[in-house]
Amino acid sequence: MNALIKICGLSTPETLAAALDAGADMVGFVRFPKSPRHVTLDLGHRLSLQAKGRARRVVLLVDPGDEDIAQAVEAINPDLIQLHGSETPERVAEIRAIVRRPVMKALGVAEKRDLEALASYATGSDHIVLDAKPPRTADALPGGNGISFDWKLLNGLDPALPIMLSGGLNPDNVAEAIRLTSPRAVDVSSGVESGPGLKDSRKIEAFIKAARTAFAAQS
């Protein structure tokens, strides 16, 4: 399986074009009103059409109800669903059965014991996004907080697990992160922004170039 690069939280045609032109494998659209990267169903629909056939489209949802899922799938028609809340393994499997398309589940990591849940999610998830556990503040988001966890915690993980590394990645550290953890994929959002929710085309291009070079060095 080829290593994958995902740019998440895209919300303008211009920055989406930058990600597509730079060769992103996946592009993510956030459906979470508290996030500065949130897109309406109408905007998500238009961005999805722009990306169709050029990258795999991902819609990010946080503890969605069935109606939330149905609306996002109808409007955005994503290739994958990303679940970034407190969804249980059973709920992940249920959503996967409902949408009949691949699902990725995000897990927050701060210490070694946070990885104990991996096995229970692995059977029902096509990708497991390992993100830094959000800080315990009222304004913290489930993801996209620009913080990383200790990548050495991943030493000894089963290489067969479909791990996507996230959390605090940026153009300057993604190569080192890949070297240390050998993930199947990497995911970035705030690390390619000039401000909350404001994607920077040059940072997107630099991130993809650095990640692609690092992945190639491991092959």
Rank of each mutant, 00 (worst) to 15 (best):
V186K: 02
G44S: 11
L49F: 11
L115A: 05
P196Y: 10
P13Q: 08
C8S: 11
L80G: 01
E74N: 13
E87F: 09
L83F: 07
G191D: 05
L130F: 05
R54M: 13
A138N: 06
F207I: 13
R37K: 14
I98W: 11
E67I: 12
R37C: 09
L154Y: 04
L83R: 05
M164A: 13
D66G: 00
E67M: 07
I163R: 02
L49D: 12
I69W: 03
K6A: 09
D63L: 04
F207Q: 03
P89Y: 11
A211L: 03
E176M: 12
L20W: 08
H127W: 15
A22V: 03
P196T: 06
A214N: 07
A122N: 09
A140G: 07
T12F: 00
G28M: 11
G191Q: 10
R113A: 14
P171V: 09
L154N: 00
I7C: 13
S166I: 00
G9Q: 07
A22D: 00
P159W: 12
L20T: 08
W151C: 02
L161M: 10
D139E: 12
G53M: 11
L154K: 00
A185K: 10
R54D: 01
V186H: 01
D187P: 06
D187H: 08
A210C: 03
L157Q: 08
D21N: 14
Q71C: 10
I95D: 05
G44D: 07
G168Y: 10
L41Q: 13
V174N: 01
K52G: 00
N173G: 03
L47E: 05
K209N: 14
K105Q: 13
R212D: 06
C8L: 05
S120E: 15
A97V: 09
I98F: 07
G197C: 01
I128V: 14
V58I: 15
P13C: 08
I208P: 10
A70F: 07
V103D: 05
L165D: 05
K133P: 03
L161W: 11
D21C: 02
P196Q: 09
D131Q: 04
G195H: 08
V188H: 03
V73L: 12
A55F: 03
A17Y: 00
L180P: 00
P89K: 13
P135C: 04
V188D: 00
A160C: 11
V62A: 07
T123K: 14
D66H: 11
A122E: 06
S11W: 00
V99E: 10
I208Q: 08
E176Q: 15
L154I: 06
A75N: 08
A216S: 15
I147V: 12
S189Q: 08
D21M: 03
S190C: 02
R54P: 02
E90A: 15
K105T: 14
D187A: 07
R31F: 14
A24H: 07
L180H: 03
R136K: 14
P159R: 12
S219D: 12
A75G: 09
